[in-house]
């Protein structure tokens, strides 16, 4: 319990996380507005307008997870302090995930609500909240393995925004195995999201357990 409390405190006192949340919210409002405006101009973009903005704002949540995890390895070498204070690494990894999820959940709920409610998609709000939270944990897990923020961001955004759409364009039907399918169609991609996140977290835990700090 002490460990979770310490991890929560760490996250709450990181200015970069606050900034990421603010930027994500601003971007979400803008994209939601853009979709609504395009719709009212009679320009259809073809996606489900209730969920489409999430396709963009999920980037903010990936970055949130990356920054939360990579901050340990940035300048100053905070990871050593963390491991000296909490040497049980499996414990630590669980506490980290728990703290990040607790912090992300309200942020994700607010984001999901602002983009789904104006498009009459209230039924999607819980699913979208869960999806964004899982995405944040996935981002944190990847950054926990990569240990550096910029490469982790390049890797994740490259996969989500460049490789993903290409794979989906080739075979739309079988793309439900991708981690971000749930952003487009929660009913189809939920399992994939959960499995991807859990696997990434497991990998991060193994990496933390095995490697020298």
């Amino acid at each position: 319990m002490n460990t979770v409390r310490a991890e929560l405190r760490k996250l709450l006192t990181l200015p970069s996380l606050r900034l990421t949340v603010l930027l994500t919210w601003t971007a979400n409002l803008m994209v939601t507005y853009a979709y609504a405006a395009a719709e009212s101009r009679g320009e259809s973009i073809g996606d489900n307008a209730a969920l489409a903005p999430l396709g963009y704002t999920q980037a903010g949540f990936l970055v949130l997870g990356v920054l939360a995890a990579a901050s340990e390895y940035q300048e100053g070498g905070q990871i050593r302090t963390t491991l000296l204070a909490m040497p049980r690494r499996r414990h630590l990894q669980a506490a980290k995930a728990l703290a990040l999820a607790a912090l992300t959940l309200p942020v994700a709920a607010a984001t999901a609500a602002t983009s789904t409610l104006p498009a009459d998609g209230a039924t999607w709000t819980p699913a979208a909240t869960a999806y964004l939270t899982l995405t944040t944990l996935l981002g944190a897990a990847v950054a926990g393995v990569v240990r550096r923020a910029v490469p982790a961001v390049v890797l994740l955004l490259g996969l989500y925004f460049i490789a993903g759409p290409l794979l989906r364009a080739r075979s739309a039907a079988s793309a439900s195995y991708l981690p971000d399918t749930a952003a487009l169609d929660p009913s189809r991609g939920a399992t994939a999201s959960i499995i991807w996140t859990l696997s990434a977290l497991t990998l991060a835990a193994l990496s933390l357990h095995r490697r020298d700090a």
Binding site: L23, V31, A34, Y35, A37, A38, R41, E43, I45, D47, G55, Y56, A59, G60, V63, V66, L67, A149, V150, V153, V154, L157, G158, F161, I162, P165, L166, A169
Partner: peptide, 24 residues
């Protein structure tokens, strides 16, 4: 590096934000 990379990579995706704005 994170802010410009995020901005630019999202915007190079198939349906970019810029493209979305051209509809507005």
């Amino acid at each position: 590096g994170i802010v410009p990379l995020t901005l630019l990579i999202i915007n190079s995706s198939v349906v970019s934000v810029s493209y979305l704005l051209t509809k507005v």
